[in-house]
Structures are given as structure tokens and as C-alpha cells.
């Protein structure tokens, strides 16, 4: 794959899936496209791009490519730099806003929470950053469509792989060893998380979720088509309070999906929020 082909493919992926790929990802993309070429019995990248652009009407091939270029693995403290932006800049701002409104309540929605690694990560961050956490009404609503995953989330027990990125001092406080090499989330931390079944495509259910300061929906929307994705993000907009923040995966672009959100630079990070 040469630079021109990578450029064309990258544009198309951005338009269809909303994912950004930097120049340095050429080799990465090349290898994955090779797999698709082989699966489709094609041998030219140009033919593949043409296929994606004009012959993939129901998006099946784009999804097949999406599955190769995105990682589905889930573990705690994934995408650390986003969490850092959240903890260092956005959380203090949200706390300040709530203080000024006179109500010490903070709500976070982890949409597409799978087996719970993300909401429990957020719970740990909240308890670590907010020294007066006990004086606040803190709630992390964790939703997913998959009942099997939700059951795992309710158990709140994780193996060494899932907890490998948890900073040591946090692990000592918030992870309780169980069995041979597993860890349960400490009850004082786990109690911040409420786990619920929810289909993101179910618009009437989605409209009932309101008064959130943060929505996290990372690496979930890439599996939706354009119109459905837009609809989900519109509901996120509705669910957020003015000034509230939306986090998608670090290579997913909020602005590609909806221009209703405002982009801001906080420190070294770009964040998206609902206008105040």
C-alpha cells in the first residue's frame, strides 16, 4: 500500500466509521487490508478501495475491516490519556459547576459498558480525585445490551489481564484479592456503579436518561451505521447537562458524527462538550 492509497482509504474510513488514522499507521493498515484482500480474492489495494467506496452498499465489508482495525479487548484504565484529561480537567470543572448550582450530585453514564471494566475504572478515579466523595451523591450508570456481559459486570470480579493497567496504589485500595489470581472491586467503590440493561438503539429508553455530567461511549459506535450512530449521539447530547462532556474512543471523531458538540482544548487534550 502506498501513501496515496492509504490516504484514500483513510478518508473513506473517516467518512464511514468516523475513525482517524495517522500517517504512522500505514503499515498497520497495510497488513489488515492484506487480510481482507486475501479473504475477498482480490490482489490490488485500488480495487479494494473502489469496492468499499461503490460496491459495499450495506456496509458489510467496511464492518469486516472495522473489526480488524479496532481492538475489542477491554481492561481497566484503558486509554489512559483520556482518563487523565477527565481527571485533571473535566472532572474539576464539572464539580465546580455542580457546586455553583448548589447540588452536590455527579452522574456519569458508561454506555456500552460490557463486563464493567470502564465504569469501575471511573468509580476508582472519582474516589481518588474527590477527597470529599462521601459528601456527594455520585452515580455511574453502566449500560449494555449484552446480558452475559452485564452479569459479569455485576459480579465485579476480574482476572490479572483486566487489572494489569491499574496503578499499584489504586489497586491496593480498590481491588480485593479473591481466589488464586482474581480481584473483586471493593464494595465502597463498586457501590457507585449501577448496572442496567439498555439498547442504545431504543430511542424511547434512551430519552429517559438525563442529567448527566459525563457520557463515556468508547469503541462502541463504530459498529453502527451513519444514521443510527448520529441518533445515538443526539441522545447523548440530550442526556448531558450544559457543559457536560462526551468521550468516544480516542480515534473516533465526535465532530464527524455531530456538530452540535463544542470542541475544546484542555491541557494537551481535545474534549467535546455540550454548550453551556
Amino acid at each position: 500500500m502506498n501513501a496515496r492509497q492509504f490516504d484514500a482509504l483513510r478518508d473513506l474510513i473517516y467518512k464511514t466509521l468516523g475513525l482517524h488514522y495517522e500517517d504512522s499507521k500505514l503499515d498497520f493498515m497495510d497488513k489488515r487490508v492484506e487480510k481482507r484482500l486475501s479473504a475477498l480474492g482480490m490482489d490490488k489495494v485500488d480495487d479494494y478501495v473502489f469496492h468499499l467506496r461503490f460496491l459495499d452498499n450495506d456496509g458489510v465489508e467496511m464492518q469486516a475491516l472495522a473489526n480488524l482495525i479496532t481492538t475489542n479487548e477491554t481492561y481497566m484504565f484503558r486509554e489512559f490519556d483520556q482518563l487523565q484529561a477527565f481527571a485533571d480537567h473535566c472532572l474539576p470543572e464539572a464539580i465546580e459547576r455542580r457546586e455553583q448550582s448548589g447540588r452536590r450530585r455527579l452522574r456519569i453514564w458508561s454506555a456500552g459498558c460490557s463486563s464493567g471494566e470502564e465504569p469501575y475504572t471511573l468509580a476508582i478515579v472519582l474516589r481518588e480525585i474527590m477527597h470529599d466523595a462521601d459528601e456527594w451523591d455520585l452515580q455511574i450508570v453502566a449500560t449494555d445490551i449484552d446480558e452475559v456481559r452485564l452479569e459479569m459486570a455485576r459480579r465485579a470480579v476480574y482476572g490479572p489481564y483486566a487489572v494489569r493497567e491499574v496503578p499499584d496504589d489504586y489497586a491496593a485500595k480498590h481491588l480485593v484479592p479473591v481466589g488464586r489470581d482474581e480481584f473483586k472491586i471493593h464494595p465502597d467503590t463498586a457501590k457507585l456503579v449501577e448496572i442496567r440493561h439498555l439498547n442504545l438503539s431504543s430511542r424511547h429508553e434512551m430519552r429517559t436518561l438525563r442529567d448527566f455530567d459525563f457520557v463515556f461511549c468508547r469503541n462502541v459506535l463504530i459498529y453502527f451505521d451513519d444514521v443510527s450512530r448520529k441518533t445515538v449521539v443526539d441522545h447523548f447530547y440530550n442526556s448531558l447537562n450544559p457543559g457536560g462532556f462526551l468521550y468516544l474512543g480516542h480515534s473516533e471523531s465526535v465532530s464527524r458524527i455531530s456538530a452540535a458538540f463544542k470542541i475544546r482544548r484542555l491541557g494537551a487534550h481535545l474534549v467535546y462538550c455540550k454548550e453551556n
Binding site: D11, Y14, S253, S255, R256, A259, I263, R265, L270
Partner: peptide
Amino acid sequence: TDGADGLEKLL
């Protein structure tokens, strides 16, 4: 490729 992408790069 568009204004949103442009804003991100500018910021």
C-alpha cells in the same frame, strides 16, 4: 477534510 477536523488540528 472538514471544519471539525480543521478545528481539531488547529487546537
